[in-house]
Simulated assay, not measured.
Amino acid sequence: MPENSALQNINTKKFQQDLVGWYEAEKRDLPWRRERDPYKIWVSEIMLQQTRVDTVIPYFNRFMEQFPTVESLASADEDAVMKAWEGLGYYSRVRNLQSAVKEVAERYGGTVPSDRNEFLSLKGVGPYTGGAVLSIAYGLPEPAVDGNVMRVLSRILTIWDDIAKPSTRKVFEEAVRHLIYKEDPSSFNQALMELGAMICTPSSPSCLLCPVQNHCQAFEEGVQRELPVKTRKKSDKKVRIGALVLQAPDGTVLIEKRPESGLLAKLWQFPNMELPVGINPRGALASYMETEYGMTVQINPEKVTDITHVFTHLTWEIDVYVGTVDVKVQKDRTAFVPAHEIETYAFPVSHQKIWKHVKGMDQ
């Protein structure tokens, strides 16, 4: 048993009954909760990472219509998969998911492995995803510790370890292993997640509505708003970018595919460059197009809009210009696309906004 006095003193059986009973009565009706298919549960868990439930629901339903099985996702065209994910962000999630699903199709005959080590060996499957899928789909007593669960248990057990440190996850995993309801690990893990999402929220926990308030050490001590302990991240880096929407004489628009790896890998975008401080954006963009693409372009004098896009670790401040090119030069990873087909390509949200604004100028 982990060395935590609150954990040693908790009435584990009563805690399980109170938590799971509340969950069974109050749980939200979510499409992936109607499933025991490990593939579909896996997809939902990947989508839910760093994304709100309300946002995920329509994406999950559409994704399942397009790729209802392991085999359908494994054999799907990568661009089609990226388009289906467009707008969810954190695109490495879906690239890793498709790679992992291909391995499931090839190595495991299309059946998601129920063995912990085999499942965790798949690309993009970490301890949380592994625990969630194995407990929900296969009923295995594996901990599924995410931010919600760490927040809930830090309060219930008054755990003062900094949850921003990767090593702290082990503390909470051990706590879950001690508390988990082995007769129904699926409901137990989902109940902890649901409690964190609906009741034990980050800044204003609804303690008077909490089904496990009687077990909560932080509530008893009045320190629930001080937990969990989480060190602040360093301030985000800001990057100024110039982006250019270029039209050829035949009305087609130049787009390019981002590199194979890195931020927003393999998504399509409009040509753009980081703008050094104090430089003239139009001149810089014209030189960039000449050097990188071999194209002489004419850029309108005024920028048409500016867009701010915030990532977890940096902020893009994008100045958007439009222009024309007289001679189309084809290069690797570039395409001149009819305007009415632009939206069939998968773009990051910032470049979707660019196109929405530019398209609106012509209407």
Rank of each mutant, 00 (worst) to 15 (best):
R240D: 15
R177S: 14
R258K: 14
A197M: 09
S154Y: 07
N272K: 04
A265W: 02
I180R: 06
L209N: 12
D184E: 15
E220R: 12
L179P: 12
V176A: 09
D236G: 09
L275W: 01
K165H: 11
S203A: 15
G147R: 00
I180T: 12
S204D: 15
E226T: 13
S261Q: 12
C200N: 04
E183A: 14
S186T: 04
H178E: 13
E260Q: 06
P205Y: 10
S186D: 14
V212M: 11
M273R: 13
L244P: 02
D146T: 03
C210E: 04
D146K: 00
F219P: 00
T201M: 06
R258A: 11
P259G: 02
I241F: 05
V145A: 08
S206W: 00
P185Q: 08
V229W: 00
V152S: 09
E183D: 15
W268H: 12
S204C: 06
E194L: 09
I159M: 12
R151D: 07
A175K: 00
E183F: 04
S187K: 12
A265D: 01
L227T: 09
S186E: 06
F219D: 13
L227Q: 06
A265N: 09
A164V: 02
P202T: 15
L244C: 04
L192Q: 10
N189I: 01
G147S: 10
Q224M: 12
R240S: 15
M198Y: 06
K238N: 13
H215V: 02
Y181V: 04
Q247Y: 10
E274Q: 11
L227H: 05
S187Y: 04
I199Q: 02
V171M: 05
Q224S: 15
T252I: 02
F188C: 05
R240C: 02
D162K: 04
Q247W: 07
L153A: 10
L244G: 04
G251F: 06
V277R: 03
V176K: 09
Q190L: 14
V212C: 09
M150W: 07
V171Q: 01
